[in-house]
Design a binder for these strands. Structure first.
Lengths: 235, 235
DNA sequence: ATGCTCAGAACCGTATACGGTTTTTGCGGG
DNA sequence: CCCGCAAAAACCGTATACGGTTCTGAGCAT
């Protein structure tokens, strides 16, 4: 029952992180350490530490009643995208320069998965393929710190992501931008990758902002004045 | 003895973080949760959680014998500076654009502190004033995510920083670059701030690389083949 | 029926305890 | 004097326990 070599908190952490990436945790659902501990057959501490780590990294917020995925404000989205615009086009250009055939194949397979999922209207598959695509080109980024930072910033958008693909026109535009980036990767042209990634960033920002704006409006009309006590800040 | 409003782990975390910023923890010294707990009159858990948080953020590494400040490889330095080059010039330009008189005063005061510390050959004061200068202009950055990310990346260099100022010529060049940035801030010229910050970044990278290279050589001659078991990675 | 109050539950933060693993250290032999 | 070996210590990871705070919901009053 005990494997001392690899610790439990990392296991719980990576599992939760994966679930976050795949939008399997809704902002309304509460994460409680005791529940996670019970479902894994472990004690509270590892589960709690994993949750705290996610809080420290900004993915979750601690409320008085369990942990919840962090909801991004419009300012958050703008700010996060400003950082992403500084990093991702450049990093993608590096990736295009240093891309190996294996990674190219992964990229193409992920792209195929995305188009397939779009045709089948399978949102969860679309999200998964999307993550695959991102991770594929990030593997070609030699700078580990750069890749980790980018990964982090992308993952913040979990809570908004689902809604982005609800609108068919937006989804199509999104896929189009991605396939153009993909083509540039295959052409091994770092500069075109950089340009198209930058365009993609701006389009994505617009999409997320409009989706989130709609979400906020809906929430406002649904429950006019509901206080959500949040004790622990993002530090 | 119990203040439930503000928790102990945050207190320990911020204290350790401050000490790290000020280079008050040497890479050779080991941080042990029980010691920290005892010195604060608390139990192991808060101290331990604070340490784990610092590990998760990449400031510390967990060894089999306590925690230690992370030692940067030459690749780490290059990679970290690549990210910094993408972020800091741009952020500084934004800060120059949105600077308030109060922050300007802080900047000038920090700059004075730096020159004073340099004249007095007071390294710890120099480090403190350096942190002040950085924090001052970062306060003018409206984008909280940008500021936090930059802060994070700068703090990684704690373990190398002290040696940077040992060489008088390097120190002078460093201060000169900083004072030129300061002047550009005062002139409210975002573009010049951006350019000078970029120049500063390249110079700083060179300085850190050479210092670290020397450190590594020294360490190698000192103890030829000493294995340092590090269990927990940077995730 | 609606608003208020108080008891109970849920959950967080911290403390203490225990087992396992790795490093150190002290001792005896080469 | 140096090297191996075994006992002991140090430290980490996990489990369990307890007190405090906040939310909830039922009962009571208006």
């Amino acid at each position: 029952m005990k494997k001392p070599t690899d610790n439990l908190v990392d296991a719980v952490y990576t599992e939760l992180r994966m679930k976050l990436q795949r939008s399997e945790i809704s902002p309304s659902g509460r994460l409680v350490d005791t529940e996670i501990a019970a479902s894994h057959g472990i004690s509270r501490m590892p589960a709690r530490e994993a949750l705290l780590r996610l809080v420290a990294e900004g993915y979750l917020v601690g409320t008085t009643r369990g942990f919840a995925v962090r909801e991004l404000s419009l300012e958050d989205i703008s700010g996060l995208f400003e950082v992403r615009r500084q990093l991702e086009p450049r990093a993608a250009a590096c990736a295009a320069r240093d891309m190996t055939p294996e990674i190219e194949a992964e990229l193409t397979s992920a792209m195929a998965g995305i188009e397939q999922a779009l045709d089948a209207n399978n949102i969860s598959a679309l999200l998964a393929a999307n993550v695959d695509f991102r991770n594929a080109w990030l593997k070609a980024v030699n700078n580990a710190h750069m890749a980790a930072t980018i990964s982090r910033f992308i993952d913040y958008f979990q809570s908004v992501r689902l809604g982005t693909f609800a609108n068919a026109a937006t989804a199509e535009q999104y896929i189009d931008g991605l396939s153009r980036i993909h083509a540039a990767f295959l052409a091994h042209d770092p500069l075109i990758v950089q340009d198209r990634m930058m365009l993609f960033m701006f389009a994505a920002e617009e999409a997320y902002l409009s989706v989130r704006r709609r979400q906020l409006e809906e929430a406002e009309t649904l429950r006019p004045a509901r206080k959500r006590t949040t004790r622990r800040g993002t530090a």
